[in-house]
Amino acid sequence: MTQDQQAGSRGGRRPGSPGALSRWVQRRMNARTNTRIRRGRSRFMGMDVLILHTVGRRSGQPRQTPLAWFADGEDARLIVASGGGTRHPDWYVNLMAHPDRVSIESPGRDAVPVTPQRLDGADREQAWQRITDAQPRYAKYQGKSDREYPVIRLTRR
């Protein structure tokens, strides 16, 4: 039995590894950004932001992630699952695993339940064009990745 197996990590990242450190930093940054959003800061890096509430795919624990959003008519918002380019972000995997347990929180407002819908085909292309027109950096990010970033429409339930 290896030391990792004894510790119960089942081959996962060890607490002192660089990956564990980056996840810790990301959680801290997300918590600070969530606090700013709750205090009324509605924009970050020139983009509108919200807090996405999901439930962990395996753990069932509540998760809160700050994300940029883009208007899609009066009652819907678009979000992009870029995740640094190489893989789907954790929040996206959680959202797809439990779509019935998703809500969003905007500055100064309580969380409201939403229904997520992954856009495909022409719907995705039209939404993607609006997103990249508003924030050209997304087209730059997409150009560096081999995978197509999912675009999700969130509509109030």
Rank of each mutant, 00 (worst) to 15 (best):
T115E: 13
Y141D: 04
A122P: 02
R109I: 07
A97C: 02
G108S: 08
R87F: 01
E74S: 15
A139D: 14
Q142G: 02
R87C: 05
R77T: 01
D100E: 15
A139R: 15
A122T: 11
P116S: 07
F70G: 02
G73F: 04
V112Y: 04
A71V: 03
G121F: 05
L119F: 03
D110R: 15
Y141V: 00
I79C: 11
G83D: 03
P107V: 13
E74A: 15
T132H: 10
A122S: 15
V102T: 06
L119D: 01
P107T: 12
D75I: 08
V112P: 02
L95F: 07
R87A: 13
D123E: 11
G73H: 06
D133M: 06
Q126S: 14
P116W: 09
G108E: 04
Y138P: 09
G108F: 07
Q142I: 01
D133L: 07
G84S: 09
D123L: 00
Q142H: 09
I79L: 14
P107H: 12
S106E: 12
Q117E: 15
R137T: 08
E74T: 15
Y141E: 08
I79D: 01
A81K: 08
A81Q: 11
P107K: 14
V102Q: 03
K140S: 08
R101I: 00
H98F: 12
R118V: 03
V93A: 07
P89F: 00
